[in-house]
Computed example of a mutant assay.
Amino acid sequence: MAGAAQGWCEAPYLSAPTQLDDLGAKAVRVEGSTYEAHILPGVKQVSPANVMRGEETQIAGLLSHQPDYSGTVCLPGTHTKWVRINDRAIVAFESCLTGEQFAFFSEASVLSHSMIDGGWDADAFEAAVRLAIQDPLSVPRRLFAIRAEMLVAQQSSAQARATLSGLLIGQELMSVPQYWQGQDVTLIGATTLCDLYSKALALAGATASILDVTTMTLAGLTAAHQQGQHADA
């Protein structure tokens, strides 16, 4: 968040639809820095209101590797982004608080008592994703059932943790079906998290490919730097 209003130096948002070829040209130079430094802008969407900072750079990296890419990019994380790309532009996007919800429920809520021992159960994750896809409206009551299962049915910590993740990711998928139904999805993010989203998408009937987040970030920064140099020439 170096470019946020409360950050190091504000880099104002670009408005979607946003041509990512303009990203580097709109970078803001940091005044008074020992080294020459520029901060890339984020992207805002007026309706429905939404913002991103950082993900646009990773998408620019994708476009540097696949210049004609058109489709959906999902960037799992604390605030997962679902982004529609066409003609080298961010056309529209949605943000889901799934990662933040998982952190709260697993670390600060009553459910945290069921996950003290950590671990992971792949079968429990898959079952929870299927349940959330089939009946997303049941997720709120199924969340409390995670605690009840520990108390009355000897559910393990690994099962509880995986069930929570599966319910939240499955519910997220059903909130943004227009971004993945009938489409191939490109995932950019932490490998473990992307693997979970890939498995969940497969259970929902969609296919996904995973790109390395570090590679995409560096490629996006390189492309933006080159764009900035051309703008200054």
Rank of each mutant, 00 (worst) to 15 (best):
V91P: 01
D68N: 12
R29L: 01
H65V: 03
K44E: 10
V30S: 01
T72P: 03
E36N: 05
H79A: 04
D68Q: 14
R88S: 12
L75C: 07
L97N: 08
L40W: 13
G119E: 08
C74W: 09
M52C: 03
R53L: 09
E36H: 11
S109N: 10
Q45M: 10
G118F: 10
S15A: 11
V28N: 04
A92S: 14
F105V: 13
A37V: 15
V110L: 15
Q19K: 13
R29Q: 15
V28L: 05
P17K: 00
R53T: 05
R88E: 04
R84K: 01
M115K: 07
N86V: 01
A89D: 00
E100Y: 11
K26C: 14
R29Y: 10
S33R: 00
Y13E: 01
Y69G: 04
L111T: 02
S109K: 12
S70I: 12
Y35H: 13
P67D: 12
K26S: 11
I59W: 02
P12F: 14
L75T: 06
S70N: 13
I39R: 07
E36M: 07
R88C: 13
G118I: 08
V51C: 01
C74Q: 05
R84F: 01
E100I: 09
S15I: 01
D87P: 07
A103D: 15
T34E: 07
V83P: 02
N50L: 00
E36A: 03
H113V: 03
T72E: 06
A103C: 11
V91L: 03
W82E: 03
A108P: 04
K44R: 15
Q101I: 15
L63F: 09
G42K: 06
N50P: 01
P41A: 06
T34R: 15
T57F: 09
Q19W: 05
L23V: 04
S106N: 10
P12Q: 10
T78R: 13
V43M: 10
K81M: 00
M52W: 09
R29H: 01
S15R: 14
T34I: 03
P76V: 12
E100G: 05
L63N: 02
W8K: 03
W8I: 05
M115A: 05
E31C: 03
Q101H: 14
L62R: 04
E56Q: 14
C9Q: 09
N86P: 02
E56K: 08
G99H: 05
G119Y: 14
D22I: 07
Q45P: 04
G119K: 06
T78H: 13
W82V: 06
H79V: 09
V91K: 00
C74P: 00
N50Y: 05
S47F: 14
L75S: 07
A60R: 14
G119H: 12
A11H: 07
W82I: 03
L97Q: 02
G77M: 11
T57A: 12
F105I: 11
A25H: 11
G54Y: 06
E100K: 12
G77C: 04
G24K: 09
F104K: 06
L111H: 05
Y35I: 08
Y35D: 02
D21P: 03
S109Y: 14
V91F: 00
H38L: 14
E100N: 07
D22H: 13
A49H: 11
V73T: 08
A108Y: 15
Y13T: 03
C74S: 07
E100L: 12
